[in-house]
Design a binder for these strands. Structure first.
Length: 419
RNA sequence: GGAGGAUUCGCAUAGCGGCCGAGUGCGCACGCUUGGAAAGCGUGUAUAGGGCAACCUAUCGAGGGUUCAAAUCCCUCAUCCUCCGCCA
């Protein structure tokens, strides 16, 4: 949510941002008009209310005939106040509804365009040349007894899978490595709730365009989170953080649930796109002035992780039209997937500036007063995609897979063997 | 699932229709005092909105209602605590 005052003072900037995203810029003018009416309604109500407060006091003090007369007046006023109040509430709601439609302001450095207009920032590592025909992760997963998509489908439907044996152990190793890395970097490790209430979901912006991809448990009016970003961000909902404690960094480990509506036929093979997976997510609450620097730091931790996995990847600056509505800029790390002959997203980090915090009412207090914090998120490791990248990039001709050095202490061996 | 109790300014509490945006204690900040500190004394100590400002308005878990007037009365909901039941 963008600050209404900012919209009022900088309508052109907001319009430009909307246009850059390929979204409706006319909302800005609707907001300004609505805000005008809102302020008139507020003034009208407050004036009447002040009158009523005075009159009410005099009613209390008065006696007899005088009191009866005053009461007569007071009753009339009460009706007027009630009416003005509901008009005020209506105007406020209308304005807020419009403001909520606006996406976050774009970072001026973000590339403008649609999904395909991303900018490649760098390549790290070189895709490996195989002297044999590389197998894909589904095949390798079978040979290693690590991934079972057939039984996953039998028991839970499409896009479901079992991680077994080496696969399960690999998840534990990845999680352990990620968490120990995060703790070293000063993150507080968190195991958050994955079942959250509507306020948390709404506040983090997942009930807007992304709502289609969210699982909802109707009976209890709760949602299954698609990322621990939701419970991590909502953790400090309606709180005022002390300025000297910022940045506050959390690393959440949780299962993530995604309906994957509208992705029929996309990535149907294997575990690139699944309904449920585990992920370690970085989340930071920081000073708005620090957000850009913090974003760079989070990206660096993502790169450190991929470097440790010895996987070739590239970093892209996601184009305006492909940003989530909360993000003002987003970087994706895309790992090289040999059998797809392509780079595929494995991690992603977004700078949400104060947008999300304003919706969730998360502020910080320092000498200058109380203001909205900035929030940022980034994937440290999303298990299935990382497993895909590791299996495919580190496979040997016989189907065995070498374990990256960083993970070896967590697995007690150097190679995954065939079963 | 059933029965009770609770939710007030950072914390602990008072208040149970107008004198309450709200008292007290603790904490915190500043000042006085002191060689320095403690104690003591004094002052201050929420957030949001509207207004150029003086100032006004709203907020006592949330939302409705009654009333000229609600922290206070009524209803619904949420959370926490205790007891019973159930499960582990």
């Amino acid at each position: 949510m963008i600050d209404v005052k900012f919209i009022r003072d900088n309508p052109d900037a907001v319009r430009a941002s909307q246009t850059g995203r390929g979204e409706d810029a006319s909302i800005v003018d609707q907001v300004i008009a609505s805000d005008e009416l809102r302020r008139v309604a507020i003034e009208k109500f407050e004036k009447l209310r002040a009158e009523q407060n005075v009159l009410s006091k005099s009613v209390g003090a008065a006696k007899g005939v005088e009191k009866t007369a005053l009461l007569e007046n007071a009753k009339e006023l009460a009706t007027a106040v009630k009416e003005a109040d509901s008009k005020r509430a209506e105007a406020e709601e209308h304005t807020k509804g419009l403001v909520m439609k606006l996406s976050n302001l774009l970072d001026p450095d973000a590339p403008i365009g649609t999904e395909a207009d991303f900018k490649v920032l760098e390549h790290v590592g070189t895709p490996r040349k195989f002297d044999f025909e590389p197998k894909d992760h589904v095949e390798l997963g079978k040979l290693l007894g690590a991934i079972d998509t057939e039984r996953g489908a039998k028991v839970a439907g499409s896009r479901s899978y079992y991680l077994t044996g080496s696969g399960a152990l690999l998840e534990f190793a990845l999680v352990n490595y990620a968490i120990s890395m995060a703790v070293k970097a000063g993150f507080i490790p968190v195991i958050p709730p994955v079942l959250v209430n509507p306020a948390a979901m709404e506040g983090t912006g997942f009930l807007g365009q992304a709502a289609e991809n969210v699982y909802r448990i109707e009976k209890d009016d709760v949602y299954l989170v698609g990322t621990s970003e939701v419970p991590l961000a909502a953790m400090h909902m309606d709180e005022v953080l002390s300025g000297d404690k910022l940045p506050m960094r959390y690393a959440g480990y949780s299962s993530c649930f995604r309906r994957e509506a509208g992705t029929y036929g996309k990535d149907t093979r294997g575990i690139i796109r699944v309904h449920q997976f585990d992920k370690v997510e970085m989340f930071s609450f920081c000073h708005p002035d620090q957000a850009k620097a913090e974003h760079a730091r989070i990206l660096q931790w993502e790169k450190d992780f991929l470097n440790a996995m010895e996987i070739p990847y590239r970093v892209i600056d996601v184009a305006s039209g492909d940003l989530g509505s909360s993000a003002n800029r987003k970087f994706d790390c895309e790992a090289w997937i040999p059998t797809q002959d392509a780079y595929r997203e494995v991690t992603s980090t977004s700078n949400c500036t104060e947008f999300q915090a304003r919706r969730l009412n998360i502020r910080y207090k320092d000498a200058d007063g109380t203001k909205a914090v900035a929030t940022l998120n980034g994937t440290l490791v999303a298990i299935p995609r990382m497993i895909v990248a590791i299996l495919e990039n580190h496979q040997n001709g016989d189907g065995t897979v070498n374990i990256p050095k960083a993970l070896q202490p967590f697995l007690g061996k150097e190679r995954f063997e065939l079963v």
